[in-house]
């Protein structure tokens, strides 16, 4: 690097560095605000906050377990639905599809990603929920009703509906990140397999997918991070009831939705503090998911690069 020449250069460099460091500052700002806002609650409820399931603002009893449970289960449902679909689509788009069809599908997926959560929720309330209630849910109940997961009354708004709407939200991100991963697999890999007389699918399975495993896992975790924090659409279809039920037809509640619903109603300090602490928990788990995802994705990138060199 050339040594800085003149005052202008120095000022500009430090200015841009300060702007770039804003991202680091923001991470600390978020952590600090959330910790400060919930310090009383943390002291008052301690570890019980995470392990008890009573959420009673009137009695000032706050346990976050139903929300943690709801977030975990709805995200799990979302992953079960979206991971196979997204990865298969990414494989289709990079390996199997005819060239002319690829770009149009990619553009459509980008448009899906651009639909705001609140609008998906609107559609969820007025279109998806009635349809789920009248057709797939009764059907599921008839077939799997003997398991605890698909028993009990059907309201429409439910954990399952929440999971489905989250799945729709994270389909585009998992698909496009997976697609990037698959595209970055060096062609050498494919050619080697083709040279052995493998079919297109065999090439994909042996050369591409096994090579990209780590990165695809990163894409899935990234999707999980988004799922955990998804707010508006879920809030509109999950039923918002703080309870732990085995049945996926029963309403649930998530960390993000309880903040969205109750924050402005929190009249007492402890109530607000408890909601801040929910925010802290949500921040913690999404940061963990994103850290893991980015590590997987970034180190995947570097292995590919060094792989291409040799």
């Amino acid at each position: 690097m050339a040594p800085p020449s003149g005052l202008g250069d120095k000022v500009f460099k430090w200015f841009t560095l300060a702007m770039a460091l804003a991202v680091v500052a923001l991470v600390f700002l978020v952590g600090w605000q959330l910790a400060r806002g919930s310090s009383l609650a943390i002291r008052r409820f301690g570890f019980h906050f995470l392990a008890t399931s009573t959420w009673d603002p009137v009695a000032e009893q706050f346990g976050a377990l139903p929300f943690i449970y709801g977030t975990a289960i709805s995200s799990l449902i979302a992953l079960i639905i979206s991971v196979p679909l997204s990865i298969a689509t990414a494989v289709y788009l990079t390996e199997l599809a005819p060239l002319w069809i690829r770009q149009p599908i990619v553009s459509l997926i980008e448009m899906l990603a651009a639909i705001p959560s609140v609008i998906l929720g609107l559609w969820g309330i007025f279109v998806m929920i009635p349809w789920l209630r009248d057709h797939p849910f009764p059907f599921l109940k008839k077939i799997f009703g003997w398991t605890p997961f698909f028993s009990g009354p059907i309201y429409g708004v439910s954990m399952l509906a929440g999971g489905i709407i989250i799945a729709v939200m994270i389909l585009p991100i998992i698909t496009s990140v997976s697609r990037e991963i698959l595209r970055s697999v060096p062609n050498l890999q494919r050619e080697a397999a083709y040279a052995l007389g493998a079919t297109r699918w065999e090439v994909t399975r042996i050369a591409v997918l096994s090579y990209a495993k780590k990165g695809l896992f990163g894409a899935v975790i990234l999707g999980l991070g988004r799922a955990l924090g998804e707010t508006m659409a879920v809030t509109m279809v999950i039923g918002n009831t703080p309870q732990i039920r085995a049945s996926l037809f029963a309403p649930g509640y998530t960390l993000a939705s309880v903040i969205a619903n109750e924050f402005t109603e929190a009249t007492t300090d402890v109530y607000l503090q408890a909601l801040f602490e929910i925010g802290l928990v949500l921040f913690g788990i999404t940061i963990l998911a994103n850290l893991l995802a980015q590590l997987l994705l970034k180190t995947m990138g570097s292995t590919i690069k060094s792989g291409a060199v040799q």
């Binding site: 700002l29 978020v30 959330l34 955990l228 924090g229 924050f263 921040f283 999404t286 998911a289 995802a293």
Partner: peptide, 10 residues
């Protein structure tokens, strides 16, 4: 990847 609701709280 920080959920947008968190920004509201902050």
């Amino acid at each position: 990847g920080v959920p947008s609701i968190i920004w509201g709280v902050v």
